[in-house]
Each structure stands twice: as C-alpha cells, then as structure tokens.
C-alpha cells in the first residue's frame, strides 16, 4: 500500500496512510478524473461510494470518493474540495456508471451540480423547495417547527441562576 502513497506523493499530491488497509489522498478539483482513472487502472476497480462533507467555516464542500482494490484488499479515499458558493463538479460517470445515483443524491442533499450527469432529478425528498437539507446552514429544528407546527422549549425548564448584575 505504501507504494501507492509514494507514487501519489511523487505525482505532487498529498497522500498519507490511514492505518494498515486504507490511505487518503487530497486532490485538486481539476485532477480528480486523472487520479481516479489512474487508481482504477492500478487495481482500484470497485467504486464503493461518494460522500460529501460541508466545511461551512472554510466555505467549501469536500467530496470523498471511496475506492476499493479487491486484489490487494485496500481502500483509497480520494478527497477534493470545491467552492461552497458555486458547487460544480465533473461527473465521474465515464469511469463508473454507478456514480450516477451517488451524484444524484449529493445534488439533492447538498446542491452540488455534476456536469455530465444526465439525471439530477430529486431522489428521496418529497417536493423539496428549501435549502438542501444536509447543508450546515439549514436549520432542521426551525424547519420542522414551522412545517409540523410545534414549539420546542429549548431550556427544558432549567432556569438560569438569578444574578444581581
């Protein structure tokens, strides 16, 4: 596994092992397709999933491609950061057809647009008109209080101590 890490580092990327059977590599947005196809040719033929992390303080989304090599039984996490304001990413469907569903889901829950994906229709949510719900700036409590008409007392009846200021 260390060969991969060294190879990726020599390609000018930031790769590091995460234990015995896993490594991660941080890739700039433009080189994702290149690195993924390299890894696919190097044995990481299985695409396990695509995840998204909202780093709201940095103003960025992080996309994590999870690949697996059955031959060597190791796992690769390919991470890339994209802007939160205009989240656009290239679709990886030409590498793995399976990406279509994952990208559709991430588009629905984070609002990331994948160029090249033919179908980004809503998938899970019913008639959703608000902010994509898994973004950190979406207030889920305020939303459910408004939609389901209830009022939550967040103090739980615990009184703040009285002080003469």
């Amino acid at each position: 596994m260390l060969d991969f890490v060294e190879k990726l580092n020599s390609m000018g990327l930031d790769a590091k092992p995460l234990g015995k059977w896993e490594f991660e590599v941080t890739v700039p947005k433009e080189r994702v397709a290149e690195i993924l196809s390299y890894l696919k040719s190097a044995g990481f033929r299985a695409f396990m999933g695509l995840a998204c992390v909202d780093w709201i303080d940095d103003g960025e989304f992080e996309l994590v491609y999870n690949l697996q090599s059955y031959g060597e039984a190791i796992q690769a996490l390919v991470k890339t950061r994209i802007s939160r304001v205009k989240p656009i990413m290239d679709s990886m469907m030409q590498l793995w057809e399976l990406c279509q569903v994952y990208e559709r889901e991430i588009h629905e829950f984070f609002g990331v647009k994948f160029v090249g994906n033919p179908n980004l229709e809503p998938f899970f949510l019913e008639n959703w008109l608000d902010t994509p719900p898994l973004r950190k700036d979406f207030d889920t409590l305020a939303y459910s209080q408004e939609l389901f008409e209830f009022k939550e007392d967040e103090t739980h009846g615990i009184e703040t101590p009285e002080r003469i200021e």
């Binding site: 609002g111 008109l129 608000d130 902010t131 979406f138 939609l147």
Partner: peptide, 11 residues
Amino acid sequence: EPVLRKAEEVT
C-alpha cells in the same frame, strides 16, 4: 413555497 423564508436565495 419554501418553509423557511431565507432558504430561497440560498437555493
């Protein structure tokens, strides 16, 4: 329309 008002511009 969106449940939370501010949401529209974010979307």
